[in-house]
């Protein structure tokens, strides 16, 4: 990778949308290492189940597949929101933003339900290193989804005031990048943590 391809050699007039997108992609690069550390911990501990239940006994693949599918589809609604925003169709944009947030909330509810089930079946954070690493990895991901839901709802609400109208398309695009990234992380978690362990 040559230096020239890393950035244009002659930066033009400062374009705020460009500046923000660079910042967001830089941040997401960092998040890759963040989730990488958590997934590594899980992979190291996936078979260290002590006296507690293991992955094959406890995972409910059909249930998790459905909730994974829901999160995946939220990326579709998110990109539709961005599309509406770029056409300055604020009403449609709000509809898609709220739809995305709702799908996120459904996913989070599924996670809460799943966690409760697991605890009832005898897997907690202190049962085994497997339990610790599973709950912390998926929990931290859930926290990212929750932050995303807050951002989506806040943007939808603020768009009513009209104060951020000029920057709206930009905000939706940046939040979209974050949201898609959180979805992409779940794509990896669903495969590596769930499907490959049963």
């Amino acid at each position: 990778m040559s230096i020239d391809t890393l950035a244009q050699e002659h930066p033009g007039p400062h374009d705020v949308s460009h500046i923000r997108k660079v910042a967001m992609w830089v941040f997401l690069g960092s998040e890759v290492l963040f989730f990488g550390s958590l997934i590594t911990t899980f992979l190291l501990y996936r078979t260290r189940i002590g006296d507690g239940p293991g992955a094959a006994e406890i995972f409910d693949i059909p249930f998790t597949s459905v909730s994974s599918f829901i999160l995946l589809m939220s990326s579709l609604t998110m990109v539709m929101a961005h599309h509406s925003a770029s056409r300055k169709d604020w009403r449609q944009m709000r509809v898609w933003l709220v739809a995305t947030a709702m799908l996120g909330i459904v996913f989070l509810s599924g996670q809460v339900f799943e966690f409760t089930e697991f605890v009832e079946e005898g897997l907690t954070v202190s049962t085994s290193p497997f339990g610790s690493s599973f709950f912390v990895l998926t929990g931290v991901h859930g926290a990212h989804v929750a932050v995303g839901v807050l951002l989506l709802l806040a943007t939808a609400l603020m768009s009513f005031t009209g104060r951020l109208r000029d920057g709206e398309g930009m905000n939706v695009e940046i939040i979209g990048l974050y949201w898609h990234f959180v979805d992409v992380v779940w794509i990896v978690i669903f495969t590596v943590v769930y499907l490959m362990q049963v």
């Binding site: 290492l33 550390s37 954070v125 085994s128 610790s132």
Partner: peptide
């Protein structure tokens, strides 16, 4: 940018080991 997230995960694990009984480093 690339090293801080790694130690942040480790520090979270230390904190959880101390406070909610996870077993990362036990």
């Amino acid at each position: 940018l690339f090293s801080l997230p790694i130690i942040t995960v480790g520090l979270i694990q230390v904190f959880l080991d101390r406070n909610i009984g996870t077993l990362f480093f036990d």
